[in-house]
Write a protein that binds this DNA or RNA. Sequence first.
DNA 1: CCGCCTCCGTACGGTGCCGTATGGTTTTCC
DNA 2: GGAAAACCATACGGCACCGTACGGAGGCGG
Lengths: 184, 184
Amino acid sequence: MKRKLAREDWADAALEALCEGGVAAIAVEPLAAKLGTTKGSFYWHFANRSALVEAAVRRWAEQDTEALITLLDGISDPERRLRELFTLVFGGKDDERVELALLAHAGDPVIGPLLADVTARRVDFIVRCFREMGRPETEARHRGLLAYTAFIGLIQARRASGGTLLPATERPGYLEFLRGIITG
Amino acid sequence: MKRKLAREDWADAALEALCEGGVAAIAVEPLAAKLGTTKGSFYWHFANRSALVEAAVRRWAEQDTEALITLLDGISDPERRLRELFTLVFGGKDDERVELALLAHAGDPVIGPLLADVTARRVDFIVRCFREMGRPETEARHRGLLAYTAFIGLIQARRASGGTLLPATERPGYLEFLRGIITG
DNA sequence: CCGCCTCCGTACGGTGCCGTATGGTTTTCC
DNA sequence: GGAAAACCATACGGCACCGTACGGAGGCGG
């Protein structure tokens, strides 16, 4: 058996490690150990460590935002589209961990630019929804920004509080409140 | 001259480094160099590196939230109190950098608990304002949470976008929008 | 069957940091 | 002014990781 390792295997392992221990956990030697191989393999597929984190981030961006956006763009009614985004993003699997880990290293020279792209694309997407719902331009921008920052802030604050901030039972209530207040 | 160094000098230098390069930048040897001294000094004042980051975080918590809270608690009218908080926190010096650096390492065993305390105290403070304004309990909690997360999310997203997200000219407008929508 | 290209193992040197050991220097206080 | 205590410099060992060098194994076309 013993499938050979490919670039993607390393990238996936890097994302996994990223969830566990942050960007610092994307380290060649530990990853090699976890994959049951050695550095020799790694440095054949990648030039260096930076290339790996770049590949990992790109993979995440592809799967977790581009795919989602193209999926949601299939919904023509902007209100339904937005509603769908809400439920997907809050109710879904909590892969917020990659999110948080990357946000944490926005200053990193390789993560920074990629993250900036993703952030811009996401906010644009939300703003577009409000625009298509007929809101005037600046209001659409404001509401879009609020929606996104409320999301980012929530996952961030929940983590910062150790999870005590919004217990599971109060979550649906708050989300309803949020939806109401944001969509006006 | 040549003042001797005290614990506080190290803690301040640590906070400074924290702003520049994140928690990883709180490293003994580089800090010693920047302070013009050596590790010998450090390990006399502190048991190890963890003790330093703890001291730094405590100092920050003291200056940047406890002091602010006791200051604002001098204002009896909750609405004015909240308004004051808004302007202080958004318009003021952008020491959000410490904020962001710490948020980034909420998982750290020494930072985590301290950060959880600070987060809880802040949200409680805001929620209390809404409560004293006569809002029913759950609504007060919701609005308080939204206010805090919108703040955290905004500084986070601005950083993540490289600063392009909310240009300075649009800032006042958005803040007005925010204030309006949050206080209902 | 042979040489080649892909892929990986091993071994090495280098770096940046942590923490300890130990002795020297300054301050304090009697 | 001299001992004790506070404070700091230097030197060392250790660890975790990066990146390179190089030498194989295995498949594949000729």
